[in-house]
Each structure stands twice: as structure tokens, then as C-alpha cells.
Amino acid sequence: MVFYTLKRIAAAFLTLVLIATITFFLMNAIPGSPFMTDKSTPEQIARANAKYGLDQPLAVQWWRYMTNYLRGDMGVSLKMQEGTDVTTILFHQGKFQLSIRVGLWALLVAVLLGIPLGCIAAYNRGRAIDSILRVLTTFGVAVPSFVFATLLLMIFAVELKWLPVLSNSLESPAAYVMPVLSLALYPSCYIAKLTRTSMLDAINQDYIRTARAKGLKTGKIIFKHALRNSLIPVITYLGPLSASIVTGGFVVETTFSIPGLGKYFISSILNRDYPVIMGTTVVLAALIVIMNLVVDIAYKIVDPRITLTSKED
């Protein structure tokens, strides 16, 4: 177990280094210099490049990034907030917190909505409620998040005026409703589908029949026997789910103009603010990688049937 965990942590670290490296070379491949404007002279650009060490060979720059990151130093912004520490920009201006808050709420909603819906559908298999839920979840998986987000905007903010159009810094709880819902739509429908399938599998097992035969109450059978065993696929999905929430974050933050990490990442790419691109990518990637790591380890703990040493495919 310890060996497995260590191996997974090493792999996760390697993935992060790889992502940082890819990002580093990709962003340096963006044509033009970050300091190029209509007015700037070649000398000015050269001076600015020298100031931030951009005139050095790529390998040297790459090594500096890597070593600095290990020390927790993410460099300073070149353009968007010139001279400010990237750490400050990401963590002390509320961007990270905003994105995380919306993401966590969405995760919570997805799990709390998806699992019960899946159970209800499985338990009422073949009845009208199952069909209705199947149609709804199929739609939920097919509707792109930005379509759903704008639909919510149109109905609840523009027409009914119940909720604010711009969520901005999410001051009131009402401002959370639409971003969280549009972010949670896909995962909750996906989880509902997953739960339904694995629940149906579980319900047909012999031990459920035994439980029924010995006269246990339906609720107890569902929660104590069937649900526990059918949650394993859902736990596996939590890894990809975190990635999909980061992805969805880009769209939702654009749609509702929330000044979070996703929105900032896109503008940093367009501005070629190298340290900010690096910082945001690494932070977002770290979120996903850590989530995957946790899920991988938790998965083995939750399901003792899986042997720790075997290699899954």
C-alpha cells in the first residue's frame, strides 16, 4: 500500500513536470514577443527581454522555471499586472478562491443530485420515472455547458429577473446559483447514468436477493447493501470529473463574467504573459492531478476486492 501510494505520487509529480515542460515550450512557440506593441522599438524589446531573462537560451529558462517552482516561486507577471508576483495574482486576489468555490459547489451538487437520481431510476426500472430520468440525463450529457449556462441566463436573469445577470465576484448566494448549476449539469447527469447502471448490476446480485428474502426493508437494502457496492464506478469518475469541472470553469467564467482562474488563463494566453500562463496551467493541472491521485488511492481502499499490486489496464 505504501509502495503503491509512493509510486502514484511519483507518477503524479512526473506528470506535473511534463505538463509544465509542454506548456513552457508551447508558450515559447507562440509567435512574437510579449513586449511587442505597435510603438515599441527593437531596443526597448531587447531591454525588456533582458530584464526578465527572456534573452537567455530556452533550456536555461526552463531550468530556472523548474527550480523556482520547487521553491514555490512562480515569477512575476510580465504584462497583465507588471511586476506582481504570480503567486499573489493567483492566490491573493481571490481568483483561485472564486474558481475553487464554484467548482466545489458544483462537485457537491453533482454528487448529491446524481447519486439519488441514479438510485431512483434504478429502483423504478422500466417505470415512467425511469424513462423520464433517462431522457433528462441523456439531454444533460448532450447539452454543451455554455448552451445550458446561457439558457439559464436568459430565463432566470433576463426574463424573470430572479437572479443577477453578472455574477462578478459572487457576493450574494444568488449569484452562485447559475454558475454552479451550469457547471454541475454534465457531471450530475453522468453520475446519475453511472449510478443507475451499477445499481442495476448490484440489485441483481445474490446477496440482495438474500437480504430481501430475510425480510429487510427496501431502504436498508438500497442504502446498506446495493448503494455501497455500486458507488465504486462513481468514485472512479471523480478524477475525470475534476478535469471536466476545470474545463467547464472556462466556459462558465466567460459566460457569467466571473474573474476566476479560467478567465484569467485565457487572457494570459492571449497576452503572452509567460509566467502567468505557466502559473495558471501548473495550478489547474495540479488540481486535476492531485484529484486523480486521491481517487486512485481511495478507490483501492474502498474496494478491497482490487489487489494493490496488480496493474490495471
Binding site: 507518477a11 506528470t15 511534463l18 505538463i19 509542454i22 506548456t23 508551447l26 508558450m27 507562440i30 478535469a243 476545470v246 474545463t247 472556462f250 488563463f265 485565457i266 494566453i269 492571449l270 500562463i277 496551467t281 489547474l284 493541472a285 486535476i288 492531478v289 486523480n292
Partner: peptide, 13 residues
Amino acid sequence: SVPDVLIVLLLQV
């Protein structure tokens, strides 16, 4: 294991 969307956005530019 690479979070695709981050790389995809960069690639586009």
C-alpha cells in the same frame, strides 16, 4: 494524464 483542455487552448494560439 495531461489535462487536455489546458494544452488545447495553448495549442490553438
